[in-house]
Design a protein around this nucleic acid. Structure first.
Length: 563
DNA sequence: GCCGTTTTCGGCCCGACTGTTTTCAGTCG
């Protein structure tokens, strides 16, 4: 059972307790463990192996005992008795906004929903036409782009007001629900009026003195909240979340006799206002915490001890090593559509010192070995020519890379002789995703042994909204990569964002180096780098953890160092 | 069920919205 499944289980236990009218603090306890597991950077099963279950925040003797029973016997007698008498289908309904445990239980009874698999369908039918909106979240880059358009529009009209995104958007999680924005202004009325008339707004849902909600023509809901500048810090902090982060902060405040809300910090009846988040956090005795870290995964303790990491920034990135040009490489996967020259020009504009052209390997089944080698040789000649023609005053260097399939047996999909044309290669899994954890780990580690492989591409293989990643023994992968100096890719492609933030954090703790790449198939995709950087930041990565923050001179040494 | 330099017992985050059970329970962020 992996962390995701465990988190689901604990959420279900919490919901079941709620339906049964158990003590609300017991419910909260299970809920908090669910959340802690969801954000845990270690596999709970591994912690169990090492006898460290109580390292998980909120896990005490009792829950540790249940987990132990779960891993030993595959089920927990206590949980089974909690679930007794409840329809399994109700837990499927909990993902629908507005439906909590009690409503889910009632619906299952009233509508006679029994089968978990068809529960949502049945509910939808019952709810006549589309009154119930199933949770579908937006990929971060698209949400960000939409928010930016509105912010830009409003900023132009109100140049002196500060405007920020809120919630998961500001924390830059991989997917975002609704878009929330905040404005610090003395002219709330005018700001809201302009908000209602932003281009692309289809419908006004509500509009009040300080807040408004609209529907964008793409169907997304956008909320705006305004606050006087003198009290803006608390609003910004409150609605940025995360929920767990805020709960933890309020517990700390409570112990100091303080009470936190979106309006400020209350002591007795007196409320203090804060213009900035910095002042707000300072009043609680800690450093300002970058939004990307606000998940209650240790950032609050770090901020109290002035031990927050210096997170990597977009401006520190010096190159992009995973680019698919339109070089005719005759691959069976997607080819890029922009020329090497076009990508080089763009790289220069972005201030990079080097790029890596890492097209997919030539199709293995449609070519003879000799044909593959010929193609690879031609590509090397092309790259050499480009580097040479730029003379000695190289503004930007082109590395000759390749993204090579890891076949199911762990072999790499080009003949050994082809490697000599490459400066480096990325190894990626593009097939047979459903192997078990042990077999998949063996497969991947075999591929990563080749001296030309420097990067493990999109390591979890997940595609948001499409499929979960394959299973890997991360402890083994981290240990291997750390020893052999293999870099894990943080792939910035919108529906990948892979490594995940949680695994980045784990990699950082294990001293494993990473590299942020866009996987561009077209020149404009190179702008997606910022989203990869966001994932790195959410995983506590500093400049030193990320290889492509190195200057060209350092980087070329690092490339050769591993051979 | 968890947790602790104010507590090993007695606490456990805050405010707002929604709908309809007009005084509150359920849900959310």
């Amino acid at each position: 059972m992996n962390n995701k499944q465990l988190a689901e289980l604990f959420k279900a236990v919490s919901a079941a307790l709620e339906v049964k009218g158990e003590d609300k603090f017991k419910i909260k306890a299970y809920d908090e463990v669910a959340s802690a597991i969801e954000h845990s950077s270690s596999e709970v099963k591994d912690l169990w192996d090492d006898g460290q279950l109580q390292e998980i925040p909120g896990v005490g003797a009792s829950i540790a005992g249940h987990l132990d029973e779960l891993f030993r016997k595959g089920k927990v007698a206590h949980f089974e008795s909690i679930f007794r008498g409840l329809p399994p289908a109700m837990f499927e309904l909990l993902n629908v906004p507005g439906i909590g445990p009690k409503t889910a239980f009632k619906l299952c009874q009233e509508l006679r929903i029994k089968d978990p698999k068809t529960a949502l369908l049945k509910l939808e039918k019952a709810a006549k036409q589309g009154k119930i909106r199933l949770e579908d979240r937006m990929l971060l880059p698209f949400a960000w782009e939409l928010a930016e358009k509105i912010i830009t529009y409003l900023q132009k009209k109100h140049p002196k007001d500060r405007i920020d995104p809120l919630g998961s958007l500001r924390r830059k999680t991989a997917t975002v629900g609704d878009i929330d924005l905040a404005v610090a202004t003395k002219n709330a009325k005018e700001v809201i009026e302009d908000f209602l008339h932003c281009p692309g707004i289809k419908e006004v849902v509500v509009s009040g003195k300080n807040t408004a909600r609209v529907i964008h023509q793409n169907g997304r809901q956008i909320d705006l909240k305004t606050m006087e500048p003198g009290a803006y810090g608390a609003l910004l902090q409150h609605f940025t979340g995360s929920k767990q982060h805020n709960i933890h902060l309020r517990e700390i405040a409570q112990k100091k006799g303080l009470s936190l809300s979106e309006y400020g910090i209350k002591k007795g009846k007196k409320i203090s206002k804060y213009a900035t988040e910095e002042a707000f956090y300072r009043a609680l005795g800690m450093e300002w915490i970058p939004p990307e870290l606000r998940e209650d995964s240790g950032e609050i303790e770090a901020a109290q001890n002035t031990k927050l990491p210096q997170l990597v920034e977009l401006g520190a990135i010096k190159g992009d090593l995973h680019l698919h040009s339109n070089f005719p490489i005759e691959t069976s996967h997607d080819e890029g559509s922009s020329s090497i020259e076009t990508l080089m020009e763009k790289g220069k504009k972005l201030g990079y010192e080097y790029l890596g052209f890492s097209e997919h390997n030539p199709s293995f089944s449609k070519h003879s070995q000799k044909q593959i080698i010929d193609i690879l040789k031609r590509k090397k000649e092309t790259i050499d020519k480009i580097n040479y023609s730029r003379g000695k005053k190289l503004l930007i260097h082109a590395f000759n890379g390749l993204e090579i399939d890891i076949k199911p047996d762990g072999r790499l999909a080009i003949p050994e002789e082809g490697f000599k044309f490459l400066d480096f290669a990325i190894a990626s899994v593009h097939s047979s995703f459903k192997m078990n954890r042990q077999a998949m780990t063996k497969r991947v580690l075999k591929a990563l042994q080749h001296p030309k492989i420097k990067i493990f591409g999109h390591p979890t293989g997940r595609k948001l909204g499409e499929r979960e990643g394959y299973e890997l023994d991360w402890e083994q992968v981290f240990s291997f990569c750390q020893k052999r100096n293999i870099w894990l890719e943080i792939n910035a492609w919108p529906n990948r964002l892979d490594l995940t933030d949680v695994l980045v954090h784990e990699a950082v703790k294990n001293g494993v180096k990473m590299i942020i790449c866009t996987d561009s198939h077209q020149v404009d995709h190179m702008d997606l780098m910022e989203y990869g950087v966001a994932v790195a930041r959410r995983g506590w990565a500093t400049k030193n953890d990320i290889m492509n923050t190195m200057s060209y001179n350092q980087f070329i040494k690092a490339l050769k160092g591993g051979e």
